[in-house]
């Protein structure tokens, strides 16, 4: 890859994607709050959803946690806790394998359902199709890397991601990385940039407060001090 394209791909594009990601979510939250939800289709057809949605989500959540843990936290810290590089890679391999398989099986299931089930198809937008397809591409590339390309990312991709996050990009770290990894990363940034315009916004409303808030909420009329 020529130097210019490399810089475009691993400095310019990630920041453009992240900017769209942040501004896109803000814009969507303000202008389209009525559609800020999971757009559940379970009500229209239950049985066809069950298995697919469940394995897809556990796979996705595992993937999220895995990437956050493996990429954002430096190996130094793992060393402190006695987790060696080899052990870390071993863990990442198996977790990645399971998560990837779940996501692809689940995502494929959901896509087939969206296309094949009359009611769901009638209530599916282009965004829904593109999103599922894109998720399959990103997770497919991820799984390919886990299975076929045993490349150590702990001192290449991971520090590069952190360099992006701390606003001190270091594209040189990405230079020796295999193409399949680069494609996985670039497609993931496409997904990030695209996500504010899809139902993926539901991820940011994950209802964790339910674990501790009081069951029944009373609210006063706005602008009054009670009846």
């Amino acid at each position: 890859m020529s130097g210019f394209v490399h810089i475009l791909g691993f400095i310019v594009f990630p920041y453009i994607a992240l900017t769209i990601f942040v501004l896109g979510h803000a814009w969507r939250y303000v202008t389209d709050w009525k559609r800020w939800n999971a757009a559940s289709s379970q009500f229209l057809h239950k049985d066809s959803l069950k298995g697919g949605i469940t394995i897809f989500h556990w796979g996705s959540l595992l993937t999220l946690v895995g990437h956050a843990g493996g990429m954002l936290i430096p190996q130094r810290i793992y060393d402190l806790f006695g987790i060696s590089e080899a052990a870390h890679n071993f863990m990442a391999h198996w977790v990645g394998l399971v998560a990837g398989l779940l996501m692809i099986a689940g995502g494929g299931w959901l896509l087939v359902r969206r296309i094949g089930q009359d009611r769901i198809a009638a209530n599916t937008s282009v965004h829904d199709y593109v999103l599922l397809a894109l998720l399959l591409v990103v997770s497919g590339l991820g799984l390919y890397n886990v299975v076929f390309t045993h490349y150590d990312v702990l001192y290449s991709v991971a520090p590069w991601i952190r360099s992006i996050v701390v606003l001190a990009p270091n594209p040189a770290l990405m230079a020796p990385v295999p193409v399949s990894y680069k494609l996985h990363i670039l497609s993931a940034f496409v997904l990030l940039a695209y996500s504010p315009f899809t139902r993926l916004v539901h991820i940011w409303s994950a209802p964790v407060t339910y674990l501790y808030r009081s069951y029944v909420i009373f609210r006063k009329l706005p602008g009054t001090k009670g009846a």
Partner: peptide
């Protein structure tokens, strides 16, 4: 049952409403 806390009881008259701005469709 609402994970988002979108449903609430009005303090003044006890009417139960779904806050459409907070409902995320967890159903």
């Amino acid at each position: 049952s609402c994970p988002s806390g979108a449903l609430y009881k009005r303090d003044e008259d006890g009417i139960v409403l779904v806050d459409q701005a907070r409902c995320r469709g967890w159903r």
